Structures are given as structure tokens and as C-alpha cells.
Simulated assay, not measured.
Amino acid sequence: MSDMTETPKPGSQPGTETASSKTASSKSGAVRHLPLIAVVAVALIGAIVLKDYLTFDTLRDNREALMAFRDQNYLGLVALFMGIYVVIVVFSLPGAAVASVTGGFLFGLVSGTAFNVVSATIGAAGIFLAARMGLGAMLTARMESAGGRVQMLKNALRQNEIEVLLLLRLVPAVPFFVANLLPALVGVKLGNFLWTTAAGIIPGAIVFTWIGVGLGEVFDRGEDPDLSLLWEPHVIGPILGLCILAAMPIIVKSVRSKKKGV
């Protein structure tokens, strides 16, 4: 019978391969965190540098130039607008509300809402994927191996994944960045994240775009748009109604599970 034991190569030492593999693993782990680190870094820099530029005053000062460019190159302005909007959302820069209102100002209610929703959804996907590749992958793996209450919490979220994602979008008090980050950290499906994001932000997008439609008249009066309109009873009421509808399946499941447990 031949000897099946492998003879070590000359110059090799036991444990060398293990050490190198650990080093490679740590490097790949660090690389996974780079997208999220870049998002946070740019967000911090942008909050300081751009806070005085992405404002309604800037829009007012460049109003005529933007309208002229729109009339000459509509598709070019659409691409420029959506690109800027995506960057604002991905890096959580100041000016998201200004961008949404600008969509209505430049493109009208229907087209402006569509451009706002698509841009915001693409930007949200950027944050989601950046977090998923970094902290999300690590936390999801830990949840899988943790067991106990942590695993129960994750399973509960997955059972109500659609409802929870819609609630995160519909509830105005939830910051947009948080609604992008949390789903990635608990491992929700990308497809569900995308369509619930697009559907959930439509009500708010319509409100902000509608404000933008009448922005020209507001500028003519020398005023700034009133973004507090979102909190008016006739506006916030229907949005809260949608929140209740999204929460109903969760409540029904909870009641049924309690009855079964009795």
C-alpha cells in the first residue's frame, strides 16, 4: 500500500497556509466595509460643505437658467436631475426635500413624481447594498448563529417583511436613511426592499412634487415654499391611514397566534 501522507514542501512551515488565509480573510472583510465607510465619510463632508448650496435660494437664483436648459434639452436635464438626486440619497446629503420639490418645479406633477420616486429608490438601493456588503453581511451571519431571541426576532421580521418595509416608508417620522439601512442589517430580500421603497414613498413624493408645481408663484412673491404642508391634517391623515392598512396584517397575525397559543 502506498503512503497517502503528503510530504511537506521544502521551506514550508506548519500553519503558514492558515495564517495567510486568515490575513486574506481579514483583508476581504475590510474591503467589504469600504462602500459603507465611503457613504458615511461623504455624508459627513457633504453635510458641512453643501448645506449652503442645496437650498431653495440656489434654485431661485438659477431658476431662469434651469428653465431655459429644460426647454432646449429636456432629456439632458432629466438625466442631470436624477443623477444629482441619486447622489443626494446615496450619501444622505442635505437637500433631499429641495430636490423633490425641484422635480415638481421643473417637470410637473406626474413626471416630477415619477422621476423623484425612481431616483430615490435607486439611491436607497445604493445605501442598502453598501450596508449589505459590510455590516449587513456580518450581522446577518451572527444572527444566523446566535439562536434564541435574536433568531426569533429575525424570523418574525421575515414573516412580516413586506408589512414592516412599507411601514418604514409610510411613517413620516422614520428618517429615510434609517429606512434604507435597517433592512440591510437584518437581511431582507433586495427585491422586496426595492418595490416597497418605490410604493411606500409615493404618497410623500406626490406631496413634495405638488409643492414644487406652484414654486414659481412662491418665488414671484419672494417667499420660500411651506414644507410643513406634509403635516396638515388633510395630507397626513390619508398617509396615516395607509400606515394602518400596512400594519393590519401584522396585527391579525399576532391575534391569531395568541389564539392558537391559548
Rank of each mutant, 00 (worst) to 15 (best):
I251K: 09
K189Y: 08
Q151H: 07
S145K: 10
P94V: 09
P203L: 12
G216I: 12
L166D: 02
F208W: 08
G204P: 01
A30V: 13
Y85W: 05
A198D: 08
V31A: 13
F208T: 07
G148Q: 06
I201V: 06
A41N: 05
P172C: 02
I244Q: 06
L168S: 15
A38F: 12
A184T: 05
A205E: 01
A120Q: 07
P238T: 08
A130R: 00
A156Q: 05
E6P: 04
G241Q: 05
M1Y: 06
V86G: 01
E232A: 14
R142W: 13
I206P: 01
G222C: 14
G187Y: 02
F56P: 00
V86Y: 00
G204V: 02
R169G: 00
H234W: 12
I127E: 13
T196V: 04
A131K: 03
A120F: 00
F105N: 03
L36K: 04
L227E: 06
D3T: 05
G103A: 14
V98T: 04
S2K: 07
V186K: 05
G112L: 09
V213C: 04
H234M: 11
V39Q: 01
L77G: 12
V101M: 06
A131W: 02
V164N: 01
M1A: 07
A47N: 11
K189E: 03
G29A: 05
F219P: 12
G46K: 06
R70Y: 10
T16I: 12
P233G: 09
N62T: 02
C243Y: 07
T196M: 09
D57T: 13
A179M: 12
L66W: 10
P238M: 08
C243T: 03
E223R: 15
K258L: 15
W210G: 14
G123T: 00
T102H: 00
L106K: 04
A173L: 14
F107H: 00
D57L: 07
I251G: 08
V252M: 08
V110W: 13
Q13V: 14
A198R: 02
G112M: 08
L168A: 11
L139F: 09
L80C: 12
V117S: 00
F56W: 05
V213K: 14
W195T: 13
A43S: 14
R142T: 07
I206E: 11
Y85I: 11
F177R: 05
I201T: 03
T23P: 06
K189M: 02
V150T: 12
A97Q: 13
V98A: 03
L182F: 10
G83S: 12
P233Q: 06
F56R: 01
M1G: 09
T5H: 06
I37A: 15
V235S: 01
H234E: 14
A99P: 06
A97N: 11
F208H: 01
M133P: 03
P8E: 03
T197K: 00
P249K: 10
E6Q: 10
Y53K: 11
E217D: 15
D61A: 15
I211G: 02
V252W: 05
G126E: 06
A68H: 11
V213H: 09
L50N: 04
L182K: 03
E232S: 12
E217H: 15
N116G: 06
G103M: 03
A96T: 07
K189G: 01
K9T: 08
A124C: 15
I236L: 15
V39T: 03
A141D: 15
G46M: 09
D52R: 04
A97K: 11
L80V: 14
A124W: 01
